[in-house]
Design a protein around this nucleic acid. Sequence first.
DNA 1: ATTAGCACTCATAATATATGAGTGCTAATT
DNA 2: AATTAGCACTCATATATTATGAGTGCTAAT
Lengths: 356, 356
Amino acid sequence: MLKYKGENIMELDDRKKKILALVVENYIESAEPVGSKQIADNYENDISPATIRNEMKQLEEIGFLEQPHISAGRVPSTLGYRYYVDNLMSNNTLSMVDIDYINNNIVSYGSVEKTLEHAADVVSKLLNLPAVLNIKTTDVVENVKILKISEKILLIILMSNSGNVKDVIVQITDSLPETRMDELSRLLNKNLKGTPLENLSLALNDVVKKELSKFSNILNEMEHIVRKELDEPKNNMKGNMESLLALPEFSNTNEIKKFLNVVNTKEIINEVLNKIDKDDISVIIGNENNQMLLKDYSLISLDFTATDTTSATLGIVSPKRVDYKKAVSTLKAVNDRLKKIFGKEKEDKDGARKED
Amino acid sequence: MLKYKGENIMELDDRKKKILALVVENYIESAEPVGSKQIADNYENDISPATIRNEMKQLEEIGFLEQPHISAGRVPSTLGYRYYVDNLMSNNTLSMVDIDYINNNIVSYGSVEKTLEHAADVVSKLLNLPAVLNIKTTDVVENVKILKISEKILLIILMSNSGNVKDVIVQITDSLPETRMDELSRLLNKNLKGTPLENLSLALNDVVKKELSKFSNILNEMEHIVRKELDEPKNNMKGNMESLLALPEFSNTNEIKKFLNVVNTKEIINEVLNKIDKDDISVIIGNENNQMLLKDYSLISLDFTATDTTSATLGIVSPKRVDYKKAVSTLKAVNDRLKKIFGKEKEDKDGARKED
DNA sequence: ATTAGCACTCATAATATATGAGTGCTAATT
DNA sequence: AATTAGCACTCATATATTATGAGTGCTAAT
């Protein structure tokens, strides 16, 4: 059995390539093992099913196809998908509808995180699969502002060095005179400046301990809210259950449980995502990653550098049978869009956001 | 067949009551039709299964129990559940763990909506079911403030008459001199004051049309973001898929699809929720509501008045087989907690939030 | 009024028996 | 030498067939 990416590279002849592509695409489409007759019907030049069978047998022998059982059609192996993704897959152009959807729904939301979250939403909706978003930032707090909204409501705004903004509304029990506001502001600035956004609630906890006596009602409340509101898990799942339920892979409930369990465990996903290439789109198929629990699934993701201090991976998790072509082109388009938003490229007329 | 809530009220003797309660509770617990032997085993005074069978038969005749098929045990009918909820259900006291969880996780978040959303989260987590939250507010915008966060980032804060606060971060392409800030502020206040929060994006759209020439980059952006961020559907679902998958009712995927479809269609849920009593806990079982699509499900919900202008319904949707006792006691505890937060009751030491 | 006894029902499980899609191989055809 | 018709073979799935047993309702005895 020859290795495709390894010592000896198997060069497939055109007919084998065409047949492999057809098997992959038919299987992605139908979720049923693909038989020789089906391929013969779809093959442009007339060849008999018998010939196709011979070819398919060879494709199986070199490890590109698999048979669920002896009298079934063929299903792509991980290696088969890989060869398809690397060599056979045409780069699909997205429909105008999809492009519009991307441009209209991914816009700058002032905060890097919110923008990326919307991007993840968009990816999830377009591909009908749960999206994973993993933001890594080394941003630190640069400035804290306090705004008195009303007698008993304060708005506390935290600005980071790269322009990220987070804010929390804090309700206090007794109103605060102007002078004390200034004091609170100085105190927060002194204590929080330089704190990595990731550690915000920890740092705040320290502030509470140190300065509680002075502003007990505010600090306590704030620490509590920050913990709940800002300290969300870094690995976000944007999901849409209905679309998963529609996949034949998930006709039985146990498979859904297994999948959700894997997808919701950020350690599992991150272990894989941490190894992908910077600023590029990665396709990781089945057991190509060494995470046993992910062996039946694929991750297709984009690594994106938003600012000097913030980067993210954004992608989808799905069964191995997935429309790689559409997924990759969608992520490419999202990448282009994000680049524009974060100023990595000149804005051009065509890609600019349309007002509707 | 006698009507329980109708003209003729069936008075059950103690033994029948006890048996009905046992059937309901066993069925809620096991999800399997309950047989006479099982009841006999759990019944405190020794009675034979044969006697139980006679009683069960009568309970079936008056419409409190049903048989899936002739040789199966009994399952409570809608009427049976109803009688149980109204007359037989002891009011369970929640565990200290649950009470603590409620007190620690439902706190004031400055905005009524956020607070209620957290409450919905808590209810969903405690009961392992999707929670529905439906907030009705007649609040209007009272004041708009603009804060320059940095050269190109503005924070726009909208305050309502009852102290609700919403804010959006807007990124602009060209920085704005101080004088123009004031102009923008006046303009927004003039145009938005008095706008019901519900119509915000519509009103903003008008502003954009009218005043676009002056502040095109800001207004456009703002309208866009408001539409996406604030104009979320009023009927929120807080859900936890895994817990649903664990229910035997949802062992087959189609049932899940049906359920999710119903639960995610806010019109269906609202049609029922709009009829429940103000400031009270309602239990609506199966076809008691006239929504055919909800006939296999129950809604247990709390109507809560948060401020003069804002009220909400908060509850759970589930298969008819659900722990009514725990659901009702949880909502009661949540109600108490919310009352304290929204100042409807004196705070007391015991229920006060604990710092951990 | 209660209950032991027993025939009866019917969902579920276990088993046996088609059906047919798809294969691999051989031998004939191009 | 490459292709393909022909055919026996495999095995998942569907259908039919037959236990199994939990639970009932009724009758007659307690």
